[in-house]
Amino acid sequence: MKNLLSKELKLCVPTQTWIFVALSMCICIPSWPVMTSYIYVIAGFMPLFPIALANRDLLYTSILPVKKTDVVKGKVLLMCFLQLVSILWSIPFAVLKVFMSASMPPEDLYPELGVNPALFGFILIMFMMFNLIYVPWYYKKPDTKNAAAQLVSMFACMIYMGIITAVFIAVPGLADFINNLANPVSLGVNIGILVAGLLLFIGGSALANYLGGKAFQKVDL
């Protein structure tokens, strides 16, 4: 597993992908919908797969002494790694946003899901959705399926993000409740969403790996 991830990081990640991962720092922008910052890491996957194809990565990895399904596992590990890096990288900027927002007049701020554990739970669910839609689809036919799989899985994530954002704006008091971490009930809900997000992210990505591997097994290289 370590070898696979190390191989992906050394050979497969173009600079633009790292730039997109770093864009999760946009979370610090006040009144900018918080979840938007994490769509960028998904957009950063756009060049990842076509570049790997151009470098004959599928054949190279398949020739290494690994199972054919490990070709998929390597990419899923990389995707999860980059997604988690984008979250970790954004944390200091999220704290900055809290300070910046505190100094702004309340009328300039709209009710939104703030920087709290629930946010990261929702983000992890979004990443899981992307992985689960994209990976099995792409590995059915890696030569041709990239564009369609990317667009549909990204679109699904944007709809999900839009719904979450809209719900917190539309339901009166919901944003205040979820952002009030001093309230033990709110804190419990926050932690519950984070744990659920983490479990779904791990389980969904593992399922994406399994389904992608199963599809790729049938692909003749």
Partner: peptide, 11 residues
């Protein structure tokens, strides 16, 4: 670079 990646897979 390619060798350093490749060799890490061979026992």
């Amino acid at each position: 670079t390619l060798t350093s990646v490749t060799k890490s897979f061979y026992s």
